[in-house]
Nucleic acid binder design. Structure first.
Lengths: 121, 121
DNA sequence: GTAAATGATACCATTTTAGTATCATTTATA
DNA sequence: TATAAATGATACTAAAATGGTATCATTTAC
């Protein structure tokens, strides 16, 4: 998020990992890995070779926190009812599951409403 | 939760782990460990010796999902801002943290509203 | 005294998380 | 055209969390 905020703040300039490392004090290889993932997922565009680096592939108001979480943590499932590695036989009738599903949906809705734009300044 | 629901449904009878194992098909040692924790945390009362077992220590409408989650997963902190094992220097000014804290508070409020009582039937 | 119960605690395997390291490829430019 | 500066791909590692198991000690009803 810090890297994305920095990149967004430099509107449409190509930013290198080295620049981010200096500004944000994030370990170089770690940050590279993250930016590579964001590139594959089309949040960033990358440019190889000398003079290369990264830029946003989308406008800041098109980048949603919900999507970033999905990219790094996988799909939301607070509620993946397993027991001893088998699916719980009561998944369909379980009242608890219904209540948690409900909360999950609301959280996801909130996370969709947080854009990179909304985190600048 | 399954065990608590079963125990609650047998109002004020002492229930043994063996009975729960038969009804709920949860491994014996695993269930014992869980019930021991619930006993220590005063959600259950335990009775040792022959004829012993477990009972609710509270009424079903005094047992909150939020507390059970805290017991087994530790305190809620979706938002424990660490980086390279150090606290992030921006914790206080971070807009993202503020937004997530907000969501967290609402989720906790919801989890507090779910009681064992509300999961019976 | 013994069987039936919980208490305490140590142990283990697997998965996830957080991060490092290295070699390959691309490209601007001197 | 060689080289330096950038990303791409990918393999590796250490530590922590997760999901359990196993065992010995203690208590208590009968």
């Amino acid at each position: 998020m810090k890297a994305l905020r920095y990149i967004a703040s430099q509107n449409n300039k190509i930013i290198t990992v080295s620049e981010l490392v200096k500004k944000l004090r994030i370990p170089h290889s770690f940050l590279r890995k993250i930016l590579q993932i964001l590139n594959k997922k089309r949040i960033l565009k990358s440019y190889k070779g000398q003079g290369g680096g990264f830029m946003l592939a989308l406008k800041p108001d098109e980048i949603f926190l919900a999507d970033l979480i999905r990219i790094f943590h996988g799909p939301f499932k607070f509620n993946d009812c397993l027991f001893v590695k088998k699916k719980c036989p009561e998944v369909n009738s379980c009242i608890l599951k219904r209540k948690i599903d409900n909360i999950e949906q609301r959280v996801i809705a909130e996370l969709k409403s947080i854009t990179l734009e909304s985190l600048l300044q």
